[in-house]
Simulated scan of single mutants.
Amino acid sequence: MNPLQVAVGVVKSADGKILISLRDQSSHQGGLWEFPGGKIEQQETAEQALIRELKEELNLNVKAATPLITVKHQYTDLLVQLNVFLVEDFSGEVESCEGQAFLWVEPDALRQYAFPKVNQPIITAARLPDRYAILEDTDEPLLRINLQKILDRGVKLIQARLKTLPPEAVKKFVEQAYPLCKQKGALLLINSAVKSPDDLEADGIHLTSRDLMFLDKRPGHRRWVAASCHTLQELRHAQKIGVDFIVLGPVLPTQTHPGAEVLGWKRFAELVSRINLPVYALGGMSESSVIAARSAGGQGISAIRAFIESE
Rank of each mutant, 00 (worst) to 15 (best):
D216N: 06
F214E: 12
R111L: 15
I20Y: 05
L277M: 07
A126D: 15
P179N: 03
R305T: 07
M1Q: 12
P258G: 13
R210Q: 11
A114D: 15
L157F: 10
T208N: 01
S228L: 00
A114I: 15
W104N: 03
M213K: 02
L50Y: 08
D24E: 10
G264F: 06
V247M: 03
D211Y: 01
L151C: 01
K172Y: 07
D130F: 10
K171D: 05
P197E: 01
W265C: 03
L277G: 03
S302G: 06
E136L: 13
A306Y: 01
E309Y: 05
A160Y: 01
Q29F: 10
K63P: 06
G259A: 15
P3Y: 12
R52Y: 14
A186N: 05
R274G: 09
D139G: 05
S273D: 11
F214M: 11
H257L: 09
Q29P: 08
P166F: 05
R153L: 08
N61C: 04
T138S: 11
S26N: 05
E88R: 14
L110F: 12
L32N: 09
I69R: 02
R236A: 07
Q159P: 01
V262D: 11
Y280S: 04
K156D: 11
M285I: 04
G99W: 02
E287Y: 04
T256Y: 12
S27K: 03
L271I: 02
D77H: 12
Q74H: 13
H28C: 07
Y280R: 06
V262P: 10
P258T: 13
G284M: 08
G99P: 06
A226T: 03
Y113P: 05
Q48E: 15
Y113E: 08
E95G: 05
I51N: 11
R210T: 06
E93W: 00
E93H: 01
Q29R: 14
A269Y: 02
V279M: 00
L86A: 15
V6L: 13
D24K: 15
E309D: 09
G16R: 06
T164K: 13
V174K: 05
I69V: 10
M213S: 01
I123W: 13
Q74Y: 12
